[in-house]
């Protein structure tokens, strides 16, 4: 019988819940601040995403006449809850290992697909034509990037012989991190292409392109419902970056120092993979993004799987 008493704490406080939310919002604030500096502006305060959330909590939520109200209001709730659960599934090397009762890497993969599905549902439930365009673009993009992600995870799992993130971390602590293992480099490159698309930033923010489809699925949302989507995306940043750390570079000391090292890795991944990318590129068209993902990341992850299977 496994002990389940720590699960609510892990989901609601640390490392999921409040901790992940606060850190995700700080990452978003850092991203906006650094992007502004790179463009020669002063930029918003670091706590700006937090101010936005408080503001949204005090606004009215309006539901369009033609929207399907239960789905329209339920979608952001489902998305946020799925990300809260996912945040508790991501280990922090040396500090936190998820309870096996909560799930393993496969559960995490399914939970990671939920925000995109929720955005599709939200877009189509809102009844707005822009939401419908966002829906179709989100679906195309998701079909394109989910394949490489699954193959990357499969390559890592094949290499370590386990679908448990704790085992994957333990394997890398004895055999060296995959970041320095040439066999895993194709998978690493595929993951580096995957996470900007999953986080929905330029050049892959095609479903929510605010200058083309006015934030697509989020167009009709206001007040607390929109705030829930902002929370979902802040939590998703922590989950996806944390997954990357666990898959490729989990070396860290034990205790508080390990936590700091983990957070520093997330900050570096955010600044290099998100901020630098989004200020230096324009938005792709959906067909360009689709063929990009089906060409390079898919080929790299297949190659990685083949090498690992042969090695």
């Amino acid at each position: 019988m496994l002990d389940t008493t720590t699960i609510p704490l892990a989901v609601l406080m640390f490392p999921g819940g409040l901790f992940a939310l606060a850190f995700g919002l700080a990452l978003k604030g850092l991203d906006r601040r650094v992007a502004a500096r790179l463009q020669g502006r002063i930029g918003p305060p670091l706590a700006q995403p937090f101010f936005d959330l408080v503001k949204l909590a005090r606004k009215r939520t309006m539901v369009p006449d033609i929207a399907a109200e239960p789905v329209f209001l339920g979608a952001p709730l489902i998305g946020t809850v799925s990300m809260l659960l996912a945040a508790a599934l991501v280990p922090i090397p040396g500090v936190y290992a998820p309870n096996p009762m909560l799930g393993d890497l496969l559960v995490l993969l399914y939970l990671l697909a939920v925000p995109a599905v929720v955005l599709m549902i939200a877009g189509s439930a809102s009844g707005s034509p822009f939401g419908a365009i966002g829906f179709s673009r989100e679906m195309a993009l998701m079909l394109a990037y989910e394949g490489p992600l699954v193959l990357v995870v499969a390559a890592v799992a094949l290499r370590t012989g386990s679908f448990s993130l704790s085992d994957i971390i333990a394997y890398q602590q004895t055999h060296g991190a995959f970041l320095f293992d040439p066999v895993m480099w194709p998978a690493l490159l595929a993951f580096l292409a995957f996470y900007p698309a999953n986080l929905g930033i330029v050049p892959f923010d095609i479903p929510e392109a605010e200058t083309e489809v006015l934030e697509g699925p989020l167009l009709e949302y206001s007040g607390p419902a929109l705030g829930l989507f902002k929370m979902m995306s802040a939590l998703k940043a922590v989950v996806v970056l944390g997954l990357g750390v666990a898959l490729f570079f989990p070396s860290a000391p034990d205790g508080a120092a390990g936590l700091l090292v983990h957070l520093a890795k997330l900050v570096v991944m955010m600044l290099v993979g998100v901020t630098l990318l989004r200020v230096s590129m324009g938005r792709m068209r959906i067909d360009q993004a689709f063929s990009f993902f089906l060409r390079w990341p898919l080929a790299l992850s297949l190659l990685s799987l083949a090498i690992v299977a042969a090695a």
């Binding site: 606004k59 309006m62 605010e210 006015l214 934030e215 989020l218 009709e220 949302y221």
Partner: peptide
């Protein structure tokens, strides 16, 4: 913001 629903 592009959407009136987000505006203050």
């Amino acid at each position: 913001c592009g959407s009136p629903r987000h505006a203050d």
